[in-house]
Amino acid sequence: MTLKTDCLGWLLNAEVLLSALTLWLPKPKRLWVWLTLLPLSATTIILRWTAVQHPPMRNLFEAFMWLPLLLVCMTLVSALRDKHDTSRLDAALGVIIAFPLAFVFSAAEGQLPPVLQSPLFVPHVLGYMIAYVLLARSFILECFHQPDASRENAAWGFAFISLALALGSIWGNEAWGAYWQWDPKEQWSLATWLIYAAYFHLQHKRRWRVTLLGVGVLFILLTVTWINLSKLFSGMHSYAGA
């Protein structure tokens, strides 16, 4: 665990601080504090993009940089469309996301290997990032007894996870010569997709909804961290942890 002390590092530290602050502030102020993350996280992405000269999605550090921006956008949609302030719940997720981004993941810069130079690179990774944020929100909203909002987030999350999985498979067919290779990350992504498919079959009882959304989030966490980083699961996606 290290403190990043360059310009990008201080912006990421500020994201952690503002997310934590949002958790404790009262209602009218906390939404505005949380919304300051919108320009802040956009700036971190632009800074990184400029520094590495490619869309910052090459590894966990770069992919996680998109999550606070997406989270704040979703808070904004809830606030403007539904007049529903979800900033505290989203800030809780924001702390969980921004903490490893600021203090755990390595910010070492690198070039894109040949396999990542594809028009499907950005839609595949961005699709997964949007899906992960929506599905994590869905779980939190369900835990805090907001079933309608949870269901809507889960439905859009499922659409994006299906799209990203399909795009990944099509990309695999272009790059590796096969659309499915039983690579560990592919299998865990399929297992995650099946969990959410099960959710849509068993969503009439709250007990099932909470369990399946929770298991889904657990699978997402395992897929993006353990499967990416562990030497046990070396495979076609091994560069993702670099």
Binding site: W182, W188, L194, I195, A197, A198, L232
Partner: peptide, 27 residues
Amino acid sequence: FRTCATLLLLGLSALAILFAFPGTHTF
């Protein structure tokens, strides 16, 4: 319907994870 479909899907998930270990491409 619902329980069977869910158990089937979860069972396949478990199977997919079972085969997630390296060196087994025999699904």
